[in-house]
């Protein structure tokens, strides 16, 4: 299995994540798209790890998961806080409120 395949796959997932983050208005979905981006990175790292026969990359993946978990904890708390105030998680509504 050439490494290119994994490269293309994870870049595709990454770009889908980017698209999602740019397209959607729902803050939770944007956040999920970002998780998708992180997973694409994880997959690529695992593939490289196999290619170089180096377990450091897998450790890196492990740490990305750790950080993602921490970010999700904070992020969802923030989203819930915003939701409590405006009863919406629509980023466009937030932009409108500013003016």
């Amino acid at each position: 299995m050439p490494i290119q395949y994994y490269l293309f796959l994870s870049l595709a997932l990454f770009c889908i994540g980017v698209m999602g983050a740019l397209m959607r208005r729902n803050a939770i979905i944007i956040f999920m798209s970002i998780e998708l981006m992180l997973n694409a990175v994880n997959l690529l790292l695992a593939a490289f790890s196999k290619m170089y026969n180096d377990s450091a990359a897998q450790i890196f993946v492990f740490f990305i998961m750790v950080v993602a978990a921490a970010e999700v904890a904070v992020g969802l708390a923030i989203i819930v806080m915003v939701y409590r105030k405006v009863h919406s998680v629509d980023v466009n509504i937030l932009n409108r409120l500013k003016h």
């Binding site: 889908i16 698209m19 999602g20």
Partner: peptide
């Protein structure tokens, strides 16, 4: 993976 990722978005 790709199909479901598109589904997410």
């Amino acid at each position: 993976a790709i199909g479901c990722a598109l589904g997410v978005v």
